[in-house]
Design a protein around this nucleic acid. Structure first.
Lengths: 223, 223
DNA sequence: TAACGTTTGTTAATGAGTTGTTAACGGACC
DNA sequence: GGTCCGTTAACAACTCATTAACAAACGTTA
């Protein structure tokens, strides 16, 4: 089992370094950011198993970041770290859908134990009984859906890869067209629709993944 | 959906009564015992969704009871209550497989929120979640109300965003029409009313936020 | 307070525009 | 010539802002 991936957002460089170092020795795979916006950008660009957020952050605070994350992912555990031990503050965090709130200074052992509590629950609840799921091998242009491999064309792979890199996020048609087709005239837009249609057919046997349209805007890959 | 079943073991009669009463009003189905052995007997005799244990108990302490429970059920969430806020003690609890540790005195609201956190993660849990608040993600056109994400259309998002940016302020119809629709003829005014109606429907499950009409003038979003 | 005109709430119908899907086309490569 | 594959075409299906229609609430006047 590969180590769990943790998004860690903490602007205090010293504390951040110590925590990151300790967590990596557990081992976890830790991605450390020092501001709300960079944290959000990281969250959008790759998958994580748990978020560990400082409340007081420059620009976007931890609560706001948590709200952004919860809006697109209702499952991922979110733990807060904070020097504010105010009761209202703790409640606010929990109301936002946070899973726990560790007051600073916290014991690093306690942090590790709590991380494990939540990872244990999410991994258990997500582990399917039968090996299933969808996996794109970009080098071999091979898409495995529930263990059934199928070979994609270039464009199919590029289109799907773009979507898979941004799960649960709204992708605008023109962004996608410029990224995959390089331009976005009317007919490319129609091609995009054709490819979305073909991809849906390929993904049809995995009910846990689907491509939704947002009228007039673009698509969202839900998984 | 029937309320989640909670095994509550607490020997302090007064505290026990208050907590039980509050939890039953959520509602949860609470079984209250006042000693370790009776708690263990109850656990063996009927199914529960979560355990809430005091650490200091007559005869068998909470840790021992937790060990007994964990030996036969590795899934069920266990929360400790304790006057001992000693760090080693907290760690001991977590090591035993407890999911959280609330130091006394604790806020009953926090207790309810934490119970919901763990119930949400177990498949059996089916109590209505405690209010989580409302959040509009403008990039994703996603409105989360009490943790339930819904995708908005352009205009819905633009209209709601305009209101959310000016909470508790009186917004004149024509200001809003010019900002969101770009003009304000009679029919656009009727459209605005249609959208207000739709937004109210979307926000209905969050009682802390509502859109009020000010006759002949416009609207106020209260939150 | 009764009656009236105006404003607002709500639902449904409409129609322009967007998207889904299948098939035909045509260049590239063999 | 044949196959592959991205594009284009054609049309069906759908979405959603607008418009209509009517009900309810409000405010004014008598």
């Amino acid at each position: 089992m590969s180590p769990a991936r943790i998004l860690f957002v903490e602007d205090d460089i010293n504390l951040g370094f110590v925590v990151r170092d300790t967590l990596e020795n557990v081992p976890f795979q830790v991605t450390h950011c020092t501001s709300g916006p960079t944290g959000w950008a990281m969250f959008q660009s790759q998958p994580f198993d748990l978020c560990l957020l400082d409340v007081m952050l420059p620009q976007t605070d931890g609560f706001t970041l948590a709200r952004q994350i919860r809006a697109v992912n209702t499952q991922i555990p979110i733990l807060f770290l904070s020097a504010l031990t105010d009761r209202d503050d703790r409640l606010e965090g929990l109301r936002l859908g946070a899973d726990d709130y560790l007051p600073k200074p916290f014991s690093i052992d306690e942090l590790i134990l709590k991380i494990n509590v939540f990872l244990r629950r999410t991994i258990i609840s997500q582990t399917p009984a039968v090996p299933v799921g969808t996996w794109l091998d970009r080098d071999n242009l091979t898409l495995s859906v529930n263990g059934q491999p199928q070979v994609l064309t270039h464009r199919e792979a590029a289109t799907l890869a773009y979507l898979l890199d941004r799960p649960n996020l709204l992708i605008r048609r023109d962004d996608m067209l410029r990224a995959v087709w390089g331009d976005d005239d009317y007919f490319m837009g129609r091609s995009l629709d054709v490819f979305i249609s073909r991809l849906r057919k390929r993904l049809a046997t995995d009910s846990s993944i689907r491509i939704e349209n947002v009228h007039g805007v673009g698509f969202v890959l839900r998984r």
